[in-house]
Write a protein that binds this DNA or RNA. Structure first.
Lengths: 99, 99
DNA sequence: AGGCTACTTGCGCGTTTGCGCAAGCAGTGA
DNA sequence: TCACTGCTTGCGCAAACGCGCAAGTAGCCT
């Protein structure tokens, strides 16, 4: 986990930066923690993060635009899930640096 | 690398978010790539990233505020270095998700 | 159809960000 | 002391962000 080359083109870096930006908000990190336990509805996530539903919906749109989450509809309820478990590894690593 | 709990307080998440934000710019990621090879001067980093020196100085200030880099002065020249190699692991992980 | 729940989208506001440019420091050397 | 290099800081601006609120949309139920 430490030998890779890490030489990127500018557009590579742009996409990495976009993912890092999606991770750069506490409420969105809270969402990732919850989704680590499986899919959750918007209202669940909104309650857990302590914000209003429209606000959460926008945060989820950011994560969706970054390709980190996907949705499934079941009746009226929209469930969000992680698309790539590696984002949890990245978050854990960042949290360990922040710790 | 996948079993940790990942349950944080809001202030934990705030600090993690601050680190992610420091990683959320292509020029700053370029800096990390260069610093992976050892310490570099501001003008070197500025040339590699293709930006003006004041601009680079501000990007470095962001990384410094996040605790990701440190400085050493040698004559007129200020050398920047990584304070924690784990940030490279985090970057690699993010790049692999972006890939 | 109407009403209901669950979610998304649009708008307006204050704050933050990244940039270019000019000015202000260190530190070296003449 | 003076000039010079290397870096930092201040300022102003356009763009993006996070938020609250209102309005719109999608699907279930009667």
């Amino acid at each position: 986990m430490s030998g890779a080359t890490l030489t990127s083109s500018d557009s590579d870096r742009q996409r990495s930066a976009a993912i890092a930006r999606a991770l750069s908000d506490p409420k969105r990190l809270c969402v990732l923690e919850r989704l680590a336990g499986g899919e959750r509805s918007v209202s669940d996530l909104s309650r857990d993060a302590g914000c209003q539903i429209p606000n959460m919906s926008q945060h989820l749109a950011v994560l969706r635009a970054a390709g980190l989450v996907a949705t499934r509809r079941e009746g009226n309820t929209v469930f969000y899930r992680l698309t790539d478990q590696r984002v949890l590894d990245a978050y854990r690593l960042i949290a360990s640096i922040a710790g």
